[in-house]
Design a binder for these strands. Structure first.
Lengths: 245, 245
DNA sequence: CGAATAATTCATCATCGGGTGAATTTCTCG
DNA sequence: CGAGAAATTCACCCGATGATGAATTATTCG
């Protein structure tokens, strides 16, 4: 329940190996990577607090102390997991948005096109990147909905991309008000997040007709759905009374 | 991390007090209620696993053993919290949908009208019901996104209402395919859930322009947004290619 | 009142969990 | 090889945690 952040002891090797030499093995089979993979999987499926460092160590076939050696603290493990794939992703997403804006289809820049550009790296990674990427997105889903430190963490890692998207949307919807854009993005974020969480909810609700794991089906619908929402909120403003009460 | 469900010992009093006599106090100040309130608040803000029974007991000014006396196990506490407000809510929501279908506005039943009927009891409770209701919804947000047991739990408590909504939507959108309806609802669920989670994310993203706690602002936009999404996905089907690859 | 039952507290257990310092093995490079 | 650094393991601390049985107080009702 408490959330200590002080780091009393440095973690990891004091002096890095000289760069250029192979780090023990070229594939991702170092203990460090194994720990990250194990943590990613467990955190994604059970949540940060439900998983102990011992669980992670066991799954990585590694001693508990080694986890502390590399990451100092449990939160350190988490941050490392979170960080690992974020950078790759963000670079791709910004590139996609820019590419689309530079060369949209014949009709010019559309909201749907922007949303699609923003989302496609995510769905590409989860559909083609294998189970580890799916785990990672499930992890993000957890964080995004954590009322304690989720907002702050997400902001720290993903705000640049999102501001980039919103700026592009603002250009595509010049009449839109900022509040409407932010709330519209917020709803997008929620819809996306629940999909990534893979809760099995839709499987139960639809009696098996739809599958939580079927990101292709979600991807085929989400952009249109969200684009329509954006346009409904941000384009015509007459019916939205924002001065509430 | 484990999820024991076996209940070895019965919980609570073996014989209930005879009904009709006041249960110690008319207001909600019994220990039992205090425990539920404390748990609701703590679980909502920090998540189930991040909160100990001791935390709950401390906050309720009650001995730890009393919590076990009433609810046997930690999960028992959680279920009781979850259950407490669900029944009330569900009854209201079904009534609202039925009322709207029986007497829609001049234009007949619309998707937006149905969504609004479905959502209004929630926003009413959170705006007018005080902080405990807000806590409760934050709790639901946690559950809804929990990949471990979230889907199952949500289904157990809320599926009837949702199936009711979907049936009504099917009538309003006779051309819609079921997969599209389910996925559309899924996105609605995610958007709603993230709003209820109150992560402070939108506050950071919008530099304070929007507030996570401003459910009125969310409510003013969500129905239109979602209705537009439903219509985009469920009405015209040409562009959606569901047979992916 | 007084017995029965409910509500509540106390003391305690066994385990888990994060974290740590020292020891041990493995690797790298001169 | 052999010194030094990195990687990994071992043994351990100690507070927190879920849970429990017995004891104690409060309440109800005949």
């Amino acid at each position: 329940m408490d959330m200590k952040v002080d780091r009393l002891r440095p973690s990891g090797p004091k002096r890095k190996r000289k760069p250029g030499r192979p780090q023990k093995s070229a594939n991702g089979d170092d203990a460090r990577e194994r720990i990250l993979d194990a943590a990613e999987n467990l955190f994604a499926h059970h949540g940060l607090d439900a998983v102990s460092i011992r669980d992670v160590a066991r799954r990585a076939h590694v001693d508990t102390a080694l986890v502390h050696y590399y990451f100092a603290t449990k939160r350190g493990v988490f941050d490392a997991v979170f960080q690992r794939r974020a950078a790759i992703l963000n670079k791709e997403r910004i590139a996609m948005i820019d590419a689309y804006e530079a060369a949209p289809g014949p009709g010019g820049v559309t909201v749907e096109g922007l949303i699609e550009a923003f989302l496609s790296p995510l769905f590409d990674a989860s559909v083609r990147g294998g189970p580890k990427w799916k785990d990672y997105f499930a992890l993000i889903a957890q964080v995004n909905n954590n009322p304690d430190w989720g907002g702050e963490t997400m902001a720290r890692f993903f705000d640049p991309v999102i501001r980039h998207l919103i700026a592009a949307l603002r250009r595509a919807l010049p009449a839109a008000r900022d509040e409407d854009l932010f709330w519209s993005y917020h709803f997008l974020s929620g819809a996306l997040t629940l999909t990534f969480a893979q809760t099995g909810r839709i499987d139960l609700l639809s009696d098996g007709l739809c599958k939580s794991t079927d990101f292709a089906a979600a991807s085929a619908r989400l952009s249109r759905y969200i684009a329509a929402g954006f346009e409904a909120i941000c384009v015509s403003r007459p019916k939205v009374r924002t001065r509430t009460k």
